[in-house]
Computed example of a mutant assay.
Amino acid sequence: MSRSSSAGTREMLASATYGHSLERLTFDGLQLLSLRLPDLLWLKRCSFVGADLRHATLEGARLILCDLRDADLRGASLRGTAFSGCDLRGADLRGADLRHLRFGSVNTGNADGRTLVTGVRSDRGVDLTTYFEDHQG
């Protein structure tokens, strides 16, 4: 995976268009506050470990096999976002807009391919298992 800077990342993502696909990029630990992704952006095997995505707009994004462990997504708009086979362990989703959010699985051969949400912080009363496409969490 290639490493990006916060400024370079903003420029790259701003130039992406509807339906654009980005693969194997690393955004670990970057400050991406209030980032706005284009509709239906596909992110495949990207890493956002510990990234600050507070108040980011990821509406309609498709994240496949991405690593978002310990990412800060407080106040982010995740409306219509689909996470397939992603690792969200330890991520903070408090105050995030979760309407129409979906967690799914992908066929990864030997691995389970399920989206992982162990230790995710969310608002009181939010049951993240209801967002799984198979409703099994």
Rank of each mutant, 00 (worst) to 15 (best):
S2K: 14
S2N: 10
R3D: 08
S4A: 07
S4K: 07
S6M: 10
T9A: 15
R10A: 11
R10T: 09
E11W: 14
E11Q: 15
L13R: 06
A16T: 14
A16W: 08
T17W: 11
H20S: 13
L22Q: 08
L22E: 09
L22T: 09
L22M: 12
E23T: 12
R24T: 13
R24F: 10
L25H: 15
T26R: 13
T26W: 09
T26K: 12
D28M: 10
G29N: 09
L30P: 14
L32I: 10
L33W: 14
L33F: 14
S34F: 11
L35D: 07
R36C: 12
P38V: 10
L40P: 06
L41G: 03
L41S: 06
W42C: 11
W42F: 10
S47C: 10
F48S: 06
A51F: 09
A51Q: 07
D52W: 08
L53V: 11
R54Y: 09
R54N: 12
H55N: 14
A56L: 04
L58N: 04
G60Q: 00
G60A: 05
A61C: 11
A61H: 04
R62Y: 14
L63G: 00
L63N: 02
I64P: 05
L65P: 05
D67M: 08
D67G: 09
L68F: 15
R69H: 08
R69F: 07
R69M: 12
D70C: 08
D70H: 08
D72C: 03
D72I: 01
G75I: 02
G75L: 01
S77I: 04
L78S: 00
L78Y: 00
R79N: 05
R79C: 05
T81V: 15
T81K: 02
A82V: 06
S84K: 12
S84A: 15
G85D: 07
G85H: 04
D87M: 05
D87H: 06
L88A: 03
L88S: 02
L88E: 01
R89Q: 06
A91P: 02
A91W: 00
D92R: 01
L93W: 01
G95I: 05
G95W: 02
D97S: 04
L98I: 00
R99C: 04
H100C: 13
L101N: 01
L101F: 01
L101H: 03
G104M: 03
S105W: 10
S105C: 09
V106E: 09
T108R: 14
A111R: 15
D112M: 13
G113M: 05
G113E: 06
G113A: 06
R114F: 10
R114E: 13
V117Y: 02
V117I: 15
T118W: 08
T118Y: 08
T118N: 12
T118L: 11
V120K: 01
G125P: 03
G125K: 04
V126C: 04
Y131C: 03
F132Q: 02
E133N: 12
D134T: 09
Q136S: 13
